[in-house]
Design a protein around this nucleic acid. Structure first.
Length: 257
DNA sequence: CGGATTTGACCTTG
DNA sequence: CAAGGTCAAATCCG
């Protein structure tokens, strides 16, 4: 019963979020003052938090767990194990990192001396298209509001990509570069001369927003733009920009609290 | 009911 | 042996 109400609430909140995203895009397109844009961003973040909380509270909660404690133990060596029910899912903080590609989570591991686990994703079309793309997501220890997302490998051309998400920013099928939204300084941590493999790039998001990183970087490069105001790209410099474009960066993501 | 997610077990590496 | 990465059964959810 409660689940029905919660699901309806989630749906309504998702619609509210869509509207807030459109509002933000509109405010930016019309050059509205930063305070209002910030307010719209806060609304989106609040809705995201509410959604997360609502999803956590949803479902039948303890209903399924009633028999778990007394359930027969699985035979030794078996993979069978009791489950925590909906509560177990609710406890997981799930950044969406919606980059338009379909990912499937295949593992989660708590890392030595880190409070937050590392999440493992692979392309949902791994079998269909023999796609070897993978990514790992972990919360930053220094600042839990930051997530480090590490990509390995590349998607095959056959892997479908949901461009609708990208289009949502301006509704026109192309994500317009919005320097006011950029905070690349803390976002991009790919350093020139680092020892990491060429097919791998790391960056960190600190905003409740989608980041079409490659598009934005290419736009920046083609326009010869060097963001020095709110963008924070100045710390990277043009050489770093070139360096980053050489990486196989093809992702944008959002972080939900 | 079938696809997606969770999570303990198992495998690999250093 | 410890730590990280992956597998796959159990479970969730639309």
């Amino acid at each position: 019963m409660a689940a029905v109400g919660t699901s309806a609430a989630c749906k309504a909140m998702a619609e509210a979020r869509e509207a807030a995203v459109r509002l933000l895009a509109l405010l930016q397109a019309t050059g509205a003052d930063p305070g209002r844009q910030e307010l719209a961003r806060q609304i989106i973040c609040c809705i995201d938090r509410a959604l997360t909380a609502a999803r956590g509270a949803g479902g039948d909660g303890e209903g399924r767990s009633s028999e778990q404690g007394l359930a027969a133990r699985p035979p030794a060596g078996s993979r069978r194990r009791p489950r925590g029910g909906a509560e177990a899912r609710a406890s997981i903080v799930r950044p969406t990192m919606d980059d338009g590609f379909a990912w499937r989570k295949y593992g989660e591991k708590s890392i030595h001396q880190q409070s937050s686990p590392r999440l493992y994703f692979r392309c949902a079309y791994k079998d269909d298209h023999r796609c070897g793309a993978r990514k790992q997501v972990e919360r930053q220890e220094e600042d839990p509001s930051l997530f480090r997302i590490t990509y390995f490998g590349d998607h095959t051309p056959a892997c479908p990509r949901d461009t609708a998400r990208v289009a949502e920013a301006d509704g026109g099928g192309h994500f317009v570069l919005q320097p006011s939204l950029c905070s690349f300084g803390p976002c991009l941590q790919a350093e020139a001369g680092s020892e990491r493999p060429a097919e791998m790039v790391e960056f960190v998001a600190d905003d409740c927003w989608d980041w079409p990183v490659k598009d934005q970087l290419e736009d920046l490069a083609s326009l010869g733009v060097s963001l020095s105001s709110s963008g924070g790209l100045d710390s990277l410099g043009t050489n770093h920009l070139e360096e980053l474009l050489n990486y196989n960066v093809d992702a944008f993501f959002r972080v939900e609290e």
